[in-house]
Design a protein around this nucleic acid. Structure first.
Length: 108
DNA sequence: ACTGTGACCTCCG
DNA sequence: TCGGAGGCCACAG
């Protein structure tokens, strides 16, 4: 633990703060952290988040597409998790993404 | 200290 | 409308 890396820890916290049935984008998280240009870092943080209790499945790209689904265990693990929370996913794309979009910067 | 990398985002053709 | 390339920032080796 003691991930005082700064950004990573921030990303993990935000991801955990995402309500169930809601989704957000990497850019939104990065922007909420004050580094909109570090959206890539957010995704990278997720790579390490698999060891933490961070629901990375609630985090998708700006298009609402499950870009990181490839990094999850299995094939449709990400989609299964989202659907289990009540999020409808079609073709690796979140339906009503705009409605389900959870803005950390706005909610926080 | 430098280089490589990454689940992105944005612009140009 | 679709495709490709670049840029950005932060972490790991």
């Amino acid at each position: 633990m003691k991930d005082n890396s700064g950004f990573f820890d921030r990303v993990y916290e935000v991801c955990r703060q995402i309500p169930e049935g809601r989704v957000t984008s990497y850019g939104a998280i990065a922007k909420s952290l004050g580094a909109a240009r570090s959206a890539r870092m957010v995704g990278w943080a997720m790579n390490n988040s698999h060891d933490k209790n961070v629901p990375a499945h609630r985090v998708v790209n700006r298009n609402g597409m499950l870009s990181g689904k490839h990094h999850f265990s299995g094939t449709n693990a990400m989609q299964q998790l989202l659907e289990a929370e009540g999020v409808e996913v079609k073709e690796l794309q979140i339906v009503n993404f705009k409605e389900l979009f959870w803005d950390p910067m706005k909610e926080l």
